[in-house]
Amino acid sequence: MGRLSVNLCGIELDNPIIPASGTFGYGYEFAELYDINCLGTFSFKGTTKDPRFGNPTPRIAECKNGMINAVGLQNPGVEKVVSEELPKLKKCFNKKVMANVSGFAVEDYAYTCQMLDKEEQVGWLEVNVSCPNVHGGGMSFGTCPEAAAEVTAAVKKVTTKPVIIKLSPNVTDIVSIAKACEAAGADGISLINTLLGMRIDLRTKKPVIANKMGGFSGDAIFPVAVRMVYQVANAVNIPVVGMGGVSTAEDVIELMLAGATAVEVGAANLIDPFVCRDIINDLPAVMDKYKINSLQEIIGGCK
């Protein structure tokens, strides 16, 4: 193992850097910019059973040190993802990819995961029970331990691949939800999804975003991510994938000290498309600065 490599649910990653779902498409837009095989892996665009256009525009709002999005899980549906997107992805990425799945009913999640389970390149299923931008699904599964556990159990039945449940920070007790997922068979937990937020245009006196509310992400949410990763990592015995406001190699190390085995980078990709490549290049020097020999050794190092 190299000094940057980590083991995520039985699969070795060359480094812990994973572009987060919804900020990296199916990889090929970024493959035009740099060789994305430098990544640990990436989590592809949230995929649902049926095709979705998503929410009306405007879907994006600027915030201090962050942004709000209400895209609403736009995707071509799992069948087209398998038949059209994954073949394109395979041409530019030769490692295992993380498949991000969302749904509106327990059966939807199971159907989509079953379809993706057959795909050799899919290494992990990241099951999103935390999307704040769709009604009657998404986050509602992730705000209640029983519902999150039900989704976890249903997905585990249809796949042999590691299942990572992506949790919402918009809850009062994230630990109880993480524990319920672990008890239901989850192989890992990823967090945090976006924080529910809103902006109002002073001139029109109306919400900036057509959907009124959306998911707040970017630099500003990083301390929330550190806190929640720390809480969850200390409460479960399965790997935690940390994310939320990460944009530098220092942020990666901080989240790993909090307990993350790997780290997803989200909104930062939209501002600086080369950020993941740059973080990977920066990591060795930053590790040297803090006298860190290998990343695998520092996971959960903050007590």
């Binding site: 498409g25 999005n69 498309p273």
Partner: peptide
Amino acid sequence: RMGCGFGACMGCS
């Protein structure tokens, strides 16, 4: 209104 401006985020569909 755009997020990334280069096709990644689906903010301006």
